[in-house]
């Protein structure tokens, strides 16, 4: 039976609370494997594990519950070991590295912040700030929308203006929040947000960060800011060196 691994904790970690379910259907009970001064939060792995909603949620849920009971290094979804012994071997082989990571991330949580423009608001800004855009827009409107070339020209100018604001606003988000966190890492590229950043901070000191986001949102109604957290520090764990 292969073993699904959720995360790595210190040897004295109590494990997630009773009744927290792991991946699979029916859900596998979550167990704790100990080796040396470390522990791994694991469960039996179902025969055919796929990235399904239920299993993604289970992964996140186990890590959130275990993380609340003590520092846990979250593994990426879908990490499967041949058996329990291989897991224990990993804990023994890279013990020093993982203990260092656990010290660094002790009591820390991640907040992920994303933002997009509210289109109408940002267009309004672009038009208001650029005389050329304003003149073109007025001319197009006066001639019932303008020729194909006219519309293309206006659209391109506006697109450039919006892009410039994306860059500007991404920096503004970062500048407003970075001082309130210990560390930051970019979120995965791909999602189409103008900014996608993860911040690391102490679990017991998140209020100033969350308040700063709220203030920033109020001061920038042309942005739609979304914050997710507290999360296990997914974006701040570092793999063990290849030949440690």
């Amino acid at each position: 039976m292969s073993t699904y691994v959720y995360g790595i904790a210190r040897g004295d970690h109590p494990g997630p609370p009773e009744g927290v379910n792991g991946v699979g259907d029916p859900p596998a009970p979550v167990r704790t494997l100990r080796a040396g001064e470390l522990a791994a939060v694991v469960s039996d792995c179902p025969g055919q594990l796929r990235p399904k909603r239920r299993d993604l949620l289970a992964h996140q849920h186990v890590l959130a519950e275990a993380g609340a009971a003590g520092s846990v290094l979250p593994l990426r979804f879908g990490s499967v070991s041949e058996d329990d012994d291989v897991v224990r071997g990993v804990l023994e082989d890279h013990g020093e590295h993982y203990r260092g990571q656990l010290d660094r991330l002790d009591g820390r949580v991640e907040y992920n912040v994303k933002a997009v423009h509210r289109e109408e608001e940002v267009l309004r800004q672009v038009v208001a700030d650029d005389a050329e855009v304003r003149a073109l827009q007025a001319a197009n409107k006066a001639s019932g929308g303008g020729s194909y070339q006219d519309r293309l020209r206006l659209g391109e100018l506006v697109a450039n203006g919006v892009r410039a604001r994306e860059v500007h606003d991404a920096k503004a988000v970062e500048a407003a929040l970075a001082p309130l966190s210990e560390q930051q890492n970019p979120g995965p590229e791909s999602a189409g947000w103008l900014v996608n950043l993860s911040f690391l901070m102490r679990r017991d000191a998140t209020a100033p960060f969350v308040n700063a986001i709220e203030e920033f949102q109020q001061a920038n109604p042309h942005l739609e800011v979304q914050v997710t957290g507290p999360l296990p520090p997914y974006s701040f764990v570092e793999p063990a060196p290849a030949h440690a």
Binding site: V5, S79, E82, S235, A240
Partner: peptide
């Protein structure tokens, strides 16, 4: 919240060579 953490669960987090990834 699943949608909002999806990319982190799938794209971040520790990767350990000795384990297979689904």
């Amino acid at each position: 919240g699943l949608y909002d953490v999806l990319e982190l669960i799938l794209d971040r987090g520790l990767v350990i060579d000795a384990f297979v990834r689904v």
